[in-house]
Design a protein around this nucleic acid. Structure first.
Lengths: 232, 232
DNA sequence: ACAAAAGTGTTACGTGTACACCCATGA
DNA sequence: TCATGGGTGTACACGTAACACTTTTGT
């Protein structure tokens, strides 16, 4: 028996269309945002949808999601994670398409606004986004739930914020994601106690005359103490 | 424009084989167990593998996973949840197969031992399971991580335990899943305080002369207080 | 009578939460 | 000088963790 030869055993089995859809989050002007586009082909042309693509048989799932992200934002080094797979037979009318959802977190400042525009994509405030085609609304809500869990247990929030941010900004970020209000004294106390922020010498005076000190996320310190559980 | 007609738009796109693989957990004799089978077709015949199947284009993903579970255990009303999707191009040598992992929790007492035997499946202690084919070991470790998280935040443990169980058994269950030891006084105090267990009049004398009272999970009470976070 | 597991309470400590005032600055 | 957001400290309540002895009963 030739154990090392690689043969196809399943070439006769029925195959299925596989797609990835990206739930792309951003954070800007104190609000959670979502990148969407108008559907340009197939059914439901002109309606709003997540940004996705079919997967080529020669392409890894993850690579497919990265490709989509690169195509529509120009970015390639962003936080990207698989969220959930959607496999109801008639989720896309007329074709059997399984879709794997990926959610991405990007700093809105960083990305290439031209690419987005050319691509026909648009940023929406999360709380006033349009209804989406197919099961994409479900995909979004699943992804935002993962985002909530992850921003709480891991350092994920920092992927959405700019490199330099103030503590009030960071607090606002959590307040927005969770739709709650957080005591500013306790928040500052805890986040500084965690010792995962680097205080910079600069101040950001965009929001007040006094100005708030800027901080940056200290990834090294974080690695040795990855527990953000009790922030609020 | 005929908006209601359902047409196939993507029939020319390349398709991919899609499979589901089930990570089936049980709990018995104080130990976490895993149901595995010897591969019977394709490559790697005779090596241990998760129990899976290809998905038919006319079958929902979830239904495929349910079908697999029914075929190998005879059970259809069990806890079953999607865990993660695996899509590296060469994960299965010779064919492009995307696999969606599902993990199931079953009460070992309940299931049909004959069906399992006929199917060629076998229960392994989690800690002394054999190496698995392809990326199935990764699938198992991803699933057990989800299991840990879920048994902590939700009531999931009760899906693995028998209908009636003692408090020492329940504690042993958590100790096994997390590989830690838990103070029995504190554990009892907390779990009873949560008020999600019904105390029965029977005792289980299997493990001691004195006997331990049996309890059952009170799903109704749980629904109104689904917070198990602080058990240990 | 003894071995083996079940069952029970109290205390010390740390963490979370609530809360009000001063500071710096630009207009 | 005043309006605005930034920044600070303390007291109390609560939950967690540590810990040792008694009870029951089959052999």
């Amino acid at each position: 028996m030739d154990q090392n030869k690689v043969i196809s055993y399943y070439s006769d089995r029925p195959k299925i269309l596989v797609a990835v859809d990206c739930i792309i989050f951003g954070f800007d002007e104190g609000e959670l945002k979502l990148l969407l586009m108008k559907k340009q082909m197939g059914s439901k042309i002109g309606e709003w949808s997540l940004i996705g693509s079919f997967i080529d048989p020669a392409e890894d799932l993850n690579d497919g999601a990265k490709r989509v992200l690169k195509e529509c934002t120009g970015l390639s080094d962003v936080y990207l994670e698989q969220s959930y797979s959607y496999g109801i037979v008639d989720r896309v009318p007329g074709d059997r398409v399984i879709s794997i959802g990926y959610y991405a977190l990007i700093r809105i400042d960083d990305h290439d606004k031209e690419t987005v525009k050319e691509f026909g994509a648009e940023w929406f405030k999360f709380n006033s986004r349009p209804a989406l085609i197919f099961d994409h609304d479900k995909m979004v809500s699943d992804a935002v739930n993962k985002l909530k869990r992850k921003t709480r247990n891991q350092s994920l929030g920092f992927e959405l914020l700019p490199e330099k941010f103030t503590i009030p900004q960071l607090r606002q970020f959590f307040e927005e994601i969770y739709q709650i209000s957080i005591d500013k004294r306790n928040f500052r106390k805890k986040i500084l106690y965690m010792d995962i922020l680097k205080k910079l010498e600069e101040k950001d005076k965009a929001n007040s005359k006094k100005g708030a000190f800027l901080y940056s996320f200290d990834r090294e310190k974080y690695e040795s103490n990855p527990d953000l559980k009790a922030l609020f």
